[in-house]
Amino acid sequence: MTTDGTLTGTPTTAGTYPITLTATNGVAPDATLNTSITVTGSGCTGSWCWPLSR
């Protein structure tokens, strides 16, 4: 994850992956959220992927 909060990458294996998001503002305590990201099929047909990218 980048410093602006963008999560990028190319998933290679379908599955559900647990993640923990943490927000800080310099005043304790930090806020946390335990959640998950589910990776499914690629969404690609031929050379086109959804959302459209090429």
Rank of each mutant, 00 (worst) to 15 (best):
M1V: 08
T2Y: 05
T2S: 15
T2R: 11
T2L: 12
T3H: 02
T3F: 03
T3G: 14
T3Q: 10
T3S: 15
D4E: 09
D4I: 09
D4N: 15
G5V: 03
T6I: 14
T6M: 15
T6H: 05
T6S: 13
L7W: 11
L7N: 07
G9C: 11
G9M: 11
G9K: 12
G9N: 08
G9P: 07
G9D: 13
T10K: 15
T12W: 01
T12P: 00
T12H: 11
T13M: 05
T13V: 15
T13N: 07
T13Y: 05
A14D: 10
A14I: 05
A14L: 08
G15S: 05
G15P: 04
G15L: 07
G15H: 07
T16V: 07
T16A: 13
Y17K: 09
P18S: 05
P18W: 05
I19S: 08
I19R: 06
I19E: 02
T20N: 06
T20C: 01
T20H: 09
L21K: 03
T22Q: 15
T22N: 11
A23L: 12
A23V: 11
A23I: 14
T24E: 14
N25V: 06
N25F: 07
G26E: 05
V27R: 06
A28G: 14
A28E: 14
A28I: 06
P29T: 10
P29G: 03
D30V: 14
D30C: 03
D30Q: 14
D30A: 15
A31T: 13
A31S: 11
A31H: 10
A31N: 07
T32E: 00
T32D: 03
T32C: 05
T32Y: 01
L33Q: 04
L33K: 13
L33S: 10
N34I: 09
N34Q: 12
N34C: 07
T35P: 02
S36M: 01
S36P: 00
S36G: 03
I37D: 03
I37S: 04
T38K: 15
T38Q: 13
T38E: 08
V39D: 01
V39P: 02
T40A: 14
T40F: 02
G41H: 06
G41K: 07
S42A: 13
S42W: 00
C44F: 01
C44S: 03
C44R: 12
C44Q: 11
T45Y: 04
T45A: 12
S47H: 04
C49V: 02
C49W: 01
C49T: 04
W50A: 12
W50C: 01
W50M: 10
W50H: 04
W50S: 14
P51H: 04
L52A: 12
L52D: 09
S53G: 12
S53R: 10
S53L: 09
R54G: 13
R54I: 08
